[in-house]
């Protein structure tokens, strides 16, 4: 039986998630025996056209060319997996979605007219159908391995859907919010990192995005009781690496609207 053909694509991103594939030091050689990596610009000069059995897509859509390119990727791919917060939620660069992008460009470039970019940074699923989303900024490489192995075995990938809180309990990490009053997005954030930040004495900053059915309003009310400035909470939600995900965005927008209402009265 021929090996499934794998392609790796990059859009607006830092390259960290696709790099995770090369960071599977103990598994890479065995994996390459089972999967034929036929398109992976960062790792190989072998460049084969589609169709592909599996496409891993990193990065968000920020240019008109990329909005076209992702359609071709979708046509070429049997199973399309987005890897990481940029591809899944628009990434940190989605902060432009609340701002005047022309002003952003003028801030950064002396001659902004040379730069072609869209006013928004949007996740892949806003453009094409996505078969599986792998969360994280960056993704967890063991989860990437699980996705690839499950596809090889012909089953759905199994990745956790619970919140970071549950993982802290499992690790035996003392709650930083309860014990130290440290603001933490753990209660509304998807696990996948293994609850890293609390184990380093800091609050979670939400890099795996919202957990299933998060009660964000309850958390932000708790943050207020901890005397966290509302502007800080808004920055922590909308300004995070998954800030444009619907759950973080809507709570951030709600607080912002509330705040501007307060100011106008």
């Amino acid at each position: 039986m021929p090996r499934p053909r794998l392609a790796v694509f990059k859009f607006a991103s830092c390259d960290g998630c696709q790099l995770s594939l090369l960071s599977l030091e103990d598994e890479l050689a065995a994996l390459a025996d089972k999967i034929d990596i036929v398109f992976f610009l960062e790792a190989s000069s072998r460049v084969e056209p589609g169709p592909y059995d599996i496409a891993l897509v990193e990065g968000s859509i920020t240019t008109a060319d990329d909005a076209q390119r992702i359609r071709q990727v979708r046509r070429d791919a049997e199973f399309l997996v987005t890897i990481g917060a940029c591809a899944t939620a628009g990434g940190i660069q989605a902060l432009r979605n609340w701002a005047d992008c022309d002003e952003f460009l003028a801030t950064v470039y002396a001659s902004p007219q040379y730069i072609q970019t869209l006013a928004t940074s949007t996740p892949i699923a806003s453009h094409v159908a996505v078969d599986f989303e792998l969360r994280g900024c960056p993704i967890n490489k063991q989860q990437l391995l699980e996705v690839l192995q499950s596809l090889l075995a012909g089953r759905r990938p199994r990745t956790p859907v619970h919140s970071v809180c549950l993982e802290c309990k499992r690790r035996g990490t003392v709650c930083v919010m309860v014990a130290q009053g440290t603001p933490c997005l753990g209660p509304i954030t998807h696990d996948g990192c293994g609850a890293l930040c609390p184990s380093f004495d800091r609050g979670c900053y939400g890099c795996f995005g919202p957990s299933q059915q998060p009660n964000a309003a309850s958390l932000t009310a708790q943050l207020r009781l901890l005397h966290v400035d509302t502007r800080t909470t808004i920055r922590g939600l909308r300004g995070s690496f998954n800030g444009f995900s619907p759950e973080f965005r809507s709570e951030g927008d709600r607080l912002a609207a509330e705040q501007s209402g307060d100011q106008s009265t």
Binding site: G91, I92, Q93, T107, G239
Partner: peptide
């Protein structure tokens, strides 16, 4: 594609 980091660093807390 440019991601415009310097623009959106403005207004962020130094700890971020």
């Amino acid at each position: 594609p440019p991601r415009l980091f310097e623009a959106f660093l403005r207004g962020r807390a130094l700890e971020d």
